[in-house]
Design a protein around this nucleic acid. Structure first.
Lengths: 193, 193
DNA sequence: CGCTAATATGTTAGCGACTAACGTCTACGG
DNA sequence: CCGTAGACGTTAGTCGCTAACATATTAGCG
């Protein structure tokens, strides 16, 4: 058990960096906080910061929720409609995260949605998440249909998250998610083209 | 008619910057091209570049299509379902743009979707566009519903654009848009919750 | 025509995110 | 106890972007 100590230390440093960063971002704003200051607050150099987080944005946006959601989607029967699968998976998966990390999640999402630079990267992340959803659905062709469905579900999810921070966490996220996905069910039927 | 000359010159400089920038981006890549090089190619200094475009990204992403789409949405009767209004408006509005600027649009969208930095900003622009759509729909409360509908329509539109560049412009954009919006009509009905 | 004010542009200096090259320390394995 | 590998720091540099100030060109007016 050699590198064990190493890994614990690395994890500790990483967490220290993230904590100090979030603290400083909340206190004085994201733009007004320098990577140097974060590194100094965590007792390391700015190079070490970049060894743990590829960009300043990642310190806020990186999480490990995606694989969890993918597994939740895969766990739903493929006989269900994709939108239903994703809706149920998101409700379950996010409920667990929500129960454990509610406050941290709220802080991070609020920061991400109110800072232009972070908002941009957030959408970029959605691009990746959507591809994961697509893969998790495991539908064959046609691809455009699957892609639209995944995009649309993500749009609903994001809108629910926005409403959640807009209400400053007063409403319950699972309810907002149900409400957002409920709107999808309301789209008009297809006419003859 | 004094400032007329001024404005023509400014417009010319702006266009020269944009042309040279897109040329260089296509030739050697977005990241590999510096603002200095763009400015030099257009015969101005880098400060002048930033006086015309607030960021390097804007030289690719800035267009004036949004107001056009908003007007198109407003022109549809409010008795129609929001999704139908937006679908019809987008098909009409974009058809005009498409007919006039097909090649330029293809180049810009391809560049935007294949460059991470630009992709991020593209999604950030969607944030603004969605708010415009929301306003154009002119629905009252509840806001969450309107917001979800606007987000979802934008997701469909973006997916169609992606498919268009993925096929390298082989398919026809209006058809792809119809196909993408068609998927929305297929969402499952609401069960009892 | 000549003067003044506005406007477009250039110059320079600087900040901050991020990278690369290289040096140092420290824990671990033989 | 020594050699090595991995974590970390130092330094110097690039690039996007901004601000302060100087300069030139033009506009409007007496």
């Amino acid at each position: 058990m050699a590198g064990d100590w190493r890994e614990r230390k690395k994890a500790a440093t990483r967490q220290r960096l993230q904590e100090q960063a979030l603290r400083l971002f909340v206190e004085r704003g994201y733009e007004a906080t320098t990577v140097e200051q974060i590194a100094a607050a965590a007792g390391v150099s700015h190079m070490t910061f970049f060894r743990y987080f590829p960009t300043k944005e990642d310190v806020v946006l990186s999480d490990s929720y995606d694989p969890l959601l993918v597994a939740a989607i895969r766990a739903r029967p493929r006989s269900e409609h994709p939108v239903v699968r994703i809706h149920a998976a998101v409700r379950e998966g996010l409920a667990a995260i929500y129960a454990a990390d509610r406050e941290a999640l709220l802080v991070r999402v609020r920061l991400a949605l109110s800072t232009p630079a972070l908002r941009a990267r957030l959408w970029e992340n959605q691009f990746a998440t959507r591809e994961l959803f697509e893969g998790a659905l495991e539908e064959g062709e046609p691809r455009l249909r699957t892609r639209v469905l995944a995009s649309v579900c993500l749009a609903a999810l994001t809108t629910a998250l926005e409403a959640w921070v807009a209400a400053d966490g007063a409403a319950e996220l699972p309810d907002l998610i149900d409400e957002a996905f409920g709107v999808l069910a309301e789209a008009p039927r297809r006419r003859r083209s």
